[in-house]
């Protein structure tokens, strides 16, 4: 069972306290109505599936409840880093 560092609690906790929330750094467009069908499709459905470094969102759902971002290696399943929502991509 992986240990995940929650950047808000600043503690490593077992993964059962957390829920994955998909790819990170996909901002909701500020003006959805102004989006073309193609742009809106890309926002809704198109996601990366990298081999290696992957930016993803996690929620400390059974802890502080906060959403945060993480860089996880999809090959080794190791977390490289976690950081608070709103901080720049690492």
């Amino acid at each position: 069972m992986i240990l995940i560092h929650c950047p808000y609690c600043d503690e490593k906790r077992p993964e059962i306290e957390f829920a994955n929330a998909g790819q990170a750094h996909i901002a909701r467009p500020l003006d959805p109505s102004g989006q073309s069908d193609a742009d809106w499709e890309a926002y809704l459905f198109i996601r990366a599936n990298p081999r290696g470094r992957h930016h993803e969102r996690w929620r400390h759902i059974h802890g502080c409840g906060r959403f945060f971002n993480a860089v996880r290696d999809t090959v080794t399943d190791k977390f490289e880093t976690t950081y608070k929502a709103g901080e720049p991509r690492r």
Binding site: A19, A21, A27, R28, R57, R59, R66, F67, A85, G86
Partner: peptide
């Protein structure tokens, strides 16, 4: 609740 928290925390903080 999870969905609302998601929007509140990450889209409209």
């Amino acid at each position: 609740l999870n969905m609302m928290e998601d929007y509140l925390q990450t889209e409209w903080p």
